[in-house]
């Protein structure tokens, strides 16, 4: 499963290159016009992977038996990283999810929105990583 081996950072790096239009990838993405959805997809993958990594550290049982959306919702649980972080993650996920599904009246997200989401997810992943270290030791096994 190649996808599983990709780290969240890798998704974010590629998304950034597309978003800024830098390098061959960025230029191709911007010229082809498919960068907005691809970016949204990669940022969302990064967020999902980050949350999975968090549960992997904190409580692997969550990863084993729940779906992506449930893992996200469980961030609100008492042993999660805190309500504020859970809310931010939920908001980012919802926005990205909206951008990566076809919806009649929505057009693709603008570069600024994607940049905002990219920054937000980067910061969220960082937070989750630190939370995972600090708070989760009792559950680790």
């Amino acid at each position: 499963m190649t996808g599983q081996q990709v780290t969240p950072e890798r998704w974010l790096t590629v998304a950034d290159r597309m978003l800024s239009g830098s390098g061959g990838l960025g230029a191709a993405a911007v010229a082809g016009g498919w960068w907005p959805r691809a970016c949204a997809c990669l940022i969302r993958l990064a967020l999902e992977a980050g949350i999975e990594a968090y549960w992997q550290r904190v409580n692997p049982a969550v990863v084993a038996c729940t779906r992506g959306r449930t893992r996200l919702l469980l961030l609100r649980a008492r042993n999660g990283p805190g309500l504020a972080v859970a809310r931010r993650a939920a908001y980012a996920w919802a926005t990205l999810s909206q951008a990566t599904h076809h919806r009649g009246y929505e057009t693709v997200p603008a570069a600024t929105e994607l940049r905002h989401l990219h920054t937000e997810v980067t910061s969220l992943l960082d937070t989750l990583q630190r939370c995972g270290v600090g708070l989760s030791s009792p559950y680790r096994r």
């Binding site: 190649t2 996808g3 081996q5 990709v6 890798r10 998704w11 590629v14 390098g23 061959g24 990838l25 230029a27 191709a28 993405a29 082809g32 498919w34 959805r37 691809a38 997809c41 990669l42 993958l45 990566t100 599904h101 076809h102």
Partner: peptide
């Protein structure tokens, strides 16, 4: 375009193509 693109790293192509196909 993404599936055939040489610029997009292989490991990234999969989910992006799948997502675009799902949207279709």
């Amino acid at each position: 375009a993404v599936a055939k693109s040489t610029e997009v790293p292989e490991d990234v192509r999969g989910p992006v193509v799948a997502e675009l196909c799902r949207c279709a």
